[in-house]
Design a protein around this nucleic acid. Structure first.
Length: 796
DNA sequence: GTTTGCACTTAGTACTTATCTT
DNA sequence: AAGATAAGTACTAAGTGCAAAC
């Protein structure tokens, strides 16, 4: 069980051994490391050597009774016939009305004084000034007046842009209103559906559809060939909604079965449209681009406390088929069109209320400055709320982002105590405490999510608190195998060694009479866990551990950056550190369709270079066999470069060379023609082709003598030099191959955007003289403006 | 204490644009 | 200059966590 045994399994080995704290080659595991690590490694070794009397049998006694307590929620997957109250089912069925008036903009302030000071004006739903009538906007120059869309916009000439405003220099707590004044242009609606009039084929017969029906058929046609369209549940849900529409709008239609529906006519039309769009002229493309920019100029910005700030998702989500992830029971259902009447606008009480689309009115207009959203509507699938927020680079988002990282950074100081606490609680006599401690260990070490309870009408995914016995299998003496679907139905699979007490606890929590579909931590909920965490550090919740560990691991991994090295090498080290974090957080992505092809290409390239090196080695051995003593590598055979491979390779070069010769011939002649000069006769090309053909024949019968990649009379030194060059190329290709393979399923962006404190990266850039643009794209630089001023010595 | 609603963060994917190869 | 590939963006689903309502 020595931790060293996992070192052979590549850079990510530390995870296998169970440590989010990866083994940095710099000061790995030594107490010279940062404070928190040293404590942790001490605990690590203490636990490893712990020779604690096996008291499980004793502690089982008082606990087993509690363990028998029925799980809060039985398996949602229907595997277990445990009687379960359909907890939230009614939520989905229940109509939206009557809604409890939990928050009425004006009344709330009067009746129950909220904790945060709320500045609210009375609703002014009726007051409809047009934005252009607004004095504020009036004073602005009409920019882009020629535009069809935006006659006015917040162009930044008044007030200041958010980027000039260094909010992070002012200390600001999280209490109080989120803004004082707020002006914006509302939301943008998707275009109305334009019927194409093309039929559905039912049992081969054309059926022209009502536009409302046709629209939905077209949604499905667009997905033909995708995984969604192949998914049974998706098909069923789609078809039910589709059929309802058919029944509603088209009397006596023959459509009965999905299997008889053929959407290919519509699909062909969609493909055609796509091709047309692709084939647009440059001017047309420019015009479309400009139109898009104009829209963004108008809706894409708002004025918040007099500053111009970017709005995030100002477009109302268009109708379509709900693409729930994983085994979502509602996937494929029709997501209906959102009308202005369903949209609530949140705006400053003194601001002009944006015009709803003509002939429509807003559902509600409120003036709630305790929230950050500009508009809101309810979506019909899960009746969840959709919001229009400011963009990631805005001051509001930036402030909460900074608070998030500061909180995680706070944990650096508390983590030793917290770990000591939960380690102690592994042995608690109180079942709930033992479960809590064990769960916290998993959250801390493996960056698991809290794991809130989920409904019957959602995909069956879990986090730490909602783990079921079936998700964890144990192997003596202390090996744990996790296998479950987490957020977005991404599989979490990991085999690891844990603290022996954790292992015994997990065994205890799984004990009969529990069955595999029972909750592992039946005495624990995210709420109870979080309220316990609050007692350890203000504001501490389960998710903070993810942020903390991600940033902490990242900073530690960056110690591997070579002190002397090229920029590329440093960036490589940076990306490796990033990847460690991504693996820790289980940030995955689908393997791209082109991956295998690209991989094969790299392998071919690698073999081709190896072949060259083999040729040189062979040559050296023949002209200077004694070199073998000095350079034993010369005698080594290149792996993969077999006689069979060589033959195939050489033959493939013939084909390529023929193609090259033809192309060159054509190109040259075209040029000559243009210059009115005599063209090269076809016979010249034929001579070249004949040569290649002859080569091909000699390869075929084995008489071919391959050309050396060096001059015939090259000295041994020259050849050795060339070999070394090839060796470097080979190792470069191999590294890129490994990188590519490791990145195949790992997404680095999520951790970079959400988990890694940007100040670590900024400090690293300053320290290593790497320009920030090399690691943060424009969006990230905008998002993290608040982090830019730290110096090179800043630490998380 | 439990349930529900709400607000906000986190997440992967589909599409678009920029850059590299050939 | 086109096609391939990588990088970046837009989109929206799916989480967390707080607090009001019951």
């Amino acid at each position: 069980m020595s931790s060293s045994e996992s070192d052979d399994s590549a850079p990510l080995s530390a995870l296998v051994s169970g440590l989010p704290l990866l083994k940095a080659s710099v000061g790995s595991g030594s107490d010279s490391d940062n404070e928190p690590l040293s404590i942790r490694s001490k605990r690590e070794s203490a636990n490893a050597g712990a020779n604690r009397p096996d008291s499980d049998s004793e502690s089982d006694q008082p606990l087993s009774g509690r363990a028998r307590a029925p799980p809060k929620k039985a398996a949602a997957n229907g595997k277990a016939p445990v009687p379960v109250a359909p907890k939230r089912a009614k939520r989905a069925i229940a109509p939206a009305e009557p809604k409890r008036p939990r928050k009425i903009a004006s009344a709330a302030a009067a009746t129950a004084p909220p904790k945060r000071p709320v500045v609210k004006a009375e609703p002014k739903t009726s007051r409809h000034k047009t934005p252009s009538a607004n004095s504020f906007v009036d004073r602005k120059p009409l920019i882009k007046a020629e535009s069809s869309v935006a006659a006015t916009s917040f162009d930044g000439s008044e007030g200041s842009d958010s980027e000039d405003f260094k909010w992070w220099l002012e200390s600001k707590d999280n209490t109080g209103p989120k803004w004082k004044t707020l002006e914006h242009f509302g939301v943008m609606f998707p275009p109305e559906y334009e019927p194409h009039g093309l039929p559905l084929l039912y049992r081969g017969k054309e059926i022209k559809m009502h536009p409302h029906v046709e629209e939905v058929a077209t949604f499905f046609a667009a997905l033909l060939g995708s995984d969604n369209a192949e998914n049974k549940v998706f098909q069923e849900n789609f078809f039910k909604d589709f059929k309802d529409l058919l029944d509603k709008h088209m009397a006596k239609h023959p459509v009965k079965a999905f299997s008889q529906c053929d959407f290919t006519v519509i699909r062909a039309h969609l493909d055609e449209q796509k091709a047309t769009r692709k084939a647009m002229t440059k001017a047309e493309k420019e015009a479309a681009k400009k139109e898009k920019l104009d829209i963004e100029e108008k809706y894409g910005f708002c004025m918040l406390d007099g500053r111009r700030e970017k709005v995030g998702n100002f477009r109302i989500e268009p109708p379509g088929l709900f693409r729930g992830r994983g085994a979502h029971p509602k996937t494929g259902m029709l997501k209906t069109r959102v009308l202005p009447e369903q949209v609530t606008i949140n705006i400053g009480s003194d601001a002009a209320i944006p015009d709803p689309p003509s002939g429509h009115s807003w559902g509600k207009v409120i003036h709630d400055n305790t929230v950050t959203w500009l508009a809101m509507w309810k979506e019909n699938i899960n009746s969840s709320t959709k919001y229009v927020f400011l963009a990631a680079g805005s001051s509001l988002k930036g402030q909460s982002d900074m608070r998030k990282f500061d909180k995680a950074r706070n944990l650096v100081r508390c983590i030793d105590d917290i770990r000591a606490q939960y380690t102690k609680d592994f042995k608690s006599d109180v079942m709930a405490e033992r479960q809590r401690a064990t769960a916290l260990y998993l959250i801390d070490r493996y960056a698991l999510r809290a794991g809130n309870e989920k409904g019957e009408d959602e995909a069956d995914t879990v986090g730490c608190c909602s783990l079921r016995c079936e998700h964890v299998s144990l192997e003596p003496p202390n090996v744990v195998h996790f296998d479950f679907l987490g957020k977005d139905s991404i599989r979490y699979e990991r085999t690891t060694e844990v603290d022996i007490l954790v292992w015994r606890n997990l065994r205890l929590f799984q004990k009969e009479p529990k069955v595999k579909s029972d909750m592992l931590f039946d005495r624990l909920t995210p709420t109870s866990l979080n309220s316990f965490l609050h007692t350890l550090m203000p504001g501490l919740t389960a998710k903070v551990f993810r942020t903390f560990n991600a940033s902490f691991v990242f900073q530690r991994q960056l110690l591997n950056t070579p002190k002397v090295g090229t920029e590329a090498e440093k960036i490589l080290a940076y990306n490796r550190a990033n990847r460690e974090v991504a693996v820790l957080c289980n940030h995955q992505r689908a393997v791209s369709k082109s991956f295998q092809g690209a991989m094969t290409k790299i392998e071919d390239k690698l073999l081709a270079v190896r072949y060259q090196r083999q040729q040189l080695k062979d040559h050296l051995m023949s002209i200077a066999p004694t070199l073998k003593k000095l350079r034993p590598d010369i005698a080594q055979k290149e792996p993969g470069v077999t006689a069979k491979w060589i033959k195939t390779y050489l033959l493939s070069t013939c084909e390529l060379d023929r193609e090259k010769a033809r192309k060159k011939f054509e190109r040259d002649n075209e040029k000559l023609k243009e210059a009115n000069e005599p063209v090269i006769p076809e016979s010249t090309l034929n001579e070249q082709l004949d040569e290649i053909n002859a080569r091909e024949a000699s390869i075929g019968d084995g008489t071919y003598e391959a050309e050396l990649p060096v001059a015939k009379n090259a000295t041994t030194d020259k050849i050795l030099e060339k070999i070394d060059k090839l060796t470097e190329r080979i190792s470069n290709i191999e590294v890129s191959k490994i990188e590519r393979d490791e990145n195949k399923t790992t997404a680095l962006s999520t951790s970079k955007i959400n988990y890694i404190d940007p100040r670590i990266s900024v400090a690293w850039c300053k320290k290593n003289g790497v320009p920030l643009e090399k690691i943060f794209n424009r969006a990230l630089r905008e998002k993290f403006t608040w982090a830019m001023e730290v110096d090179s010595e800043w630490t998380f």
